[in-house]
């Protein structure tokens, strides 16, 4: 087994009385594609936000490689090698694709105010390097032809790809993808799965949240399942799919009716889970 790159130990986060994440421990290993699934509101995105420092855990530790992430300011994470995308796309929408990706490369540069105003050779060299890296990232995601367009004018699927390009350009060791397939059609989803594999093949560890079981079961090496903020299963895709607790979380059982009634959406993942099972049968 390869070594652990991200390690969550007993992580808990409360919002007032609500326990959003409840004593979750899980790890992500170097070079794998790791998935986190669960019904809506299970706390998946919250885990990402904890890892990226948007929220601070009430208890527990998060380690990235050898380093504890407790108390690391969120803007430092990109430099340490953690990049992410967002569930509801967050692009710099009135800037061009090129500029979006250049900002993604912020942590790869060092120049400041003086460099910008005096434009001495080191500054120019850095700008050239950054823009070269930006081109590469755009091309990797197949967006280099549109580099000059404004992000807000892109179709939805390309916006998602631009977000990934922006994350990739920082040359992360760990890439967090928050529902990358949301809103995509089947063709786009297959292309996305291919892209995620390609990213993994460059040596980047991928940690993703996804609702689409076809995508999750198709590409993940290991899958963890979250329900009501607690981890209820963790293992190979096939194991997780058979897990009684997981099936109960998604489909509910007679004995749990009481709880189910409070859950807003349950129908969507149900369908997706069946779809996933069908795919794996092939």
């Amino acid at each position: 087994m390869s070594e652990t790159i991200l390690d969550l130990q007993d992580v808990t986060l409360r919002f007032g009385g609500l326990v959003a994440v409840d004593g979750v421990s899980m790890d992500v290993r170097q070079g794998e594609i790791r998935a986190l699934i669960g019904p809506n509101g299970a706390g998946k995105s919250t885990i990402f936000n904890l890892v990226t420092g948007v929220y601070r855990p009430n208890q527990g530790t998060i380690r990235f490689g050898e380093r504890s992430l407790n108390g690391v300011p969120p803007h430092r994470l990109a430099g340490l090698g953690i990049a992410r995308t967002f569930q509801n796309i967050r692009l710099f929408s009135s800037l061009s694709l090129m500029e979006n990706v250049l900002i993604g490369a912020h942590s790869r540069g060092r120049s400041g105010l003086a460099g910008a105003v005096f434009r001495l050779p080191p500054f120019r060299q850095e700008e050239e390097n950054l823009s070269l890296q930006a081109w590469e990232a755009l091309a990797f995601m197949g967006l280099d032809q549109k580099a000059g367009e404004l992000a807000k004018n892109l179709p939805y699927g390309e916006q998602r790809r631009l977000e990934i390009a922006r994350a990739l350009v920082s040359q992360p060791r760990l890439l967090l993808l928050d529902e990358p397939a949301a809103g995509m059609n089947p063709q786009e989803k297959s292309a996305l799965m291919e892209t995620i594999r390609r990213i993994r093949d460059t040596g980047i560890t991928v940690f993703l949240i996804e609702h689409d079981m076809r995508v999750v079961m198709g590409i993940s090496d290991r899958v963890a399942v979250l329900n009501y903020g607690k981890k209820i299963a963790d293992g190979l895709p096939a194991e997780v799919r058979e897990d009684a607790g997981v099936i109960e979380a998604y489909l509910g059982t007679g004995g749990k009716r009481e709880r189910r009634r409070t859950r807003p959406v349950v129908a969507l993942p149900q369908v997706a889970l069946e779809g996933g099972a069908g795919h794996a049968g092939n």
């Binding site: 803007h75 430092r76 990049a83 967002f86 967050r90 692009l91 929408s93 994350a167």
Partner: peptide
């Protein structure tokens, strides 16, 4: 444009 995305990109807002 977006402070949260900027922070995630490594920008000290």
């Amino acid at each position: 444009e977006d402070e949260i995305a900027a922070t995630a990109s490594g920008v000290n807002t």
